Amino acid sequence: MDTQSWKDVYKGMSSDNIKGLVLALSSSLFIGASFIIKKKGLKKAGASGVRAGVGGYSYLYETLWWVGMITMIVGEVANFAAYAFAPAILVTPLGALSIIISAVLARIILREKLHTFGILGCALCVVGSITIVLHAPQEREIQSVKEVWDLATEPAFLLYAVAVIIAVLILIFHYLPQYGQTHIMFYIGVCSLMGSLSVMSVKALGIALKLTLSGTNQLIYPQTWAFTLIVIVCVLTQMNYLNKALDTFNTAVVSPIYYVMFTSLTILASIIMFKDWCSQFLKASLNGI
C-alpha cells in the first residue's frame, strides 16, 4: 500500500479509532508473550504437582506462571483502554498479532513445531484482521453506561447471552469430562463463548471510565458494577479453561484456534449488541439511492 493510500486510511479513521488501534497493538505484544511465559510456568508446575489439564492448581505456586499472568494483565489493561476508544469490531481482530508473536516464541523457546498449515492459518488471520481494521465502522456516540445497559438488555442480545451460558454449561458438565483431554475445541469453546460476553462488558466499563474521567461520573450507577461483576466471572472462567488448554495442547495450536473462535464470536456479539455495522449498511444504501 503506497503512502497516499495510508493517508487515505488514516483520514477515514477517527482520532479515537487510531488511539484504540495503537493500544490494541500494544496489548497484542504483551498477550502474545504471556502465552509462552504461562506455558513455561504450567510445564514447570506440572513436573512437580498435579497438572492443570487434569484439574490441578499447582501452577498458582509457580513464580513463572505469575510473571506470565502479570504480562497478560498488562496486555489486558491496554486492551481495556482500547475498547474505550474504538469499537470491538476494530479492537478484537488485532489480536492476530498475538498469534504471530506466540507462534514464533513457541518455536524458539518451547521448541514446538509450526507446520505449513499453521503458518498459512496465521497469515490468513492477519490478512482478515487488516481487512476488518481498514473497514471498521465509526463508533456510535454513547452518553451513559445506562445506555449500554439498555443495549445489553434488548431481546436479541439477551437471547444471545442465554444461548452462550447454556452452551458453556453443556460443555463444562457434559463434554469436558469425557473429551477435554483429546479435543481442543471444547476448552477453547468455553473460553471463546465466555470471552464474547466479557468483551461486551469490558467495552461497557471502558466507556464508563472514559465518561467518568471526562467529568460525567458513571460509578454511581448500579449498571457499572453489574458489568464489573460479569467481567470478573467471565475472566476467571476464561483463565481457568485457557490454562487447561495450554497445559494439554501445543501453544501454536491453542493460540490461533482461540483467536479465530474468540474473534468471530466477539464480532457477532458486537453486531447484535452495539449494531456496529447498521450505520455502514444504511450509508451504503443511501449512497446507492
Rank of each mutant, 00 (worst) to 15 (best):
G215E: 08
Y241K: 11
C191E: 06
V104K: 07
A103H: 03
F274M: 14
Q218G: 05
G75P: 01
Y221T: 07
I89V: 15
S201V: 05
V133T: 13
A24E: 02
L105G: 02
D150K: 15
K113A: 15
A103Q: 13
P256E: 06
W277K: 03
G53V: 06
L114V: 15
G195V: 01
Y83C: 10
R51A: 12
I272C: 08
W6S: 11
Y241E: 03
I100W: 13
Q4L: 15
K203G: 02
G215W: 09
S264F: 07
T116D: 11
A152I: 00
P87L: 08
V162N: 02
V260L: 14
Y160E: 01
F274T: 05
Q181Y: 07
M194D: 00
A136Y: 00
V254L: 03
V233R: 04
I132E: 11
V91T: 03
G56S: 02
I230N: 00
A78M: 15
M185D: 13
L197M: 13
A82W: 06
V190K: 07
A96S: 14
I101W: 05
D247W: 07
P137M: 06
T224D: 11
G206S: 11
G12I: 06
I130Y: 15
T224R: 10
V91M: 05
A123P: 01
A152H: 02
L169E: 12
G189C: 08
A123M: 13
Q4I: 13
R140W: 02
L246S: 04
G32P: 01
F274W: 14
K19S: 11
Y61L: 14
A33T: 08
D8V: 11
L60G: 02
S264C: 11
G46W: 10
P93M: 06
S270T: 00
S264D: 09
Y221Q: 10
A33G: 05
T248C: 10
G46Y: 12
Q143H: 14
G32D: 00
A163P: 10
S48T: 14
M239I: 15
I101H: 05
L120E: 12
A84I: 05
G128Y: 04
I109M: 05
F35T: 01
V199P: 02
K210T: 10
G195N: 07
A245I: 03
D247G: 01
Y83G: 08
S58N: 07
N243W: 00
A252K: 11
R51T: 11
K11Y: 13
V233N: 09
G32I: 01
T263S: 09
K210L: 11
L21P: 06
Q181R: 10
L211G: 07
I142W: 00
L42G: 08
S34N: 01
S201P: 06
L124W: 12
R111V: 03
I170M: 15
H183R: 15
M1N: 12
D150Q: 15
V199Y: 01
I257Y: 05
A156C: 03
F117A: 14
I109Q: 09
T71R: 00
I289P: 14
A245S: 13
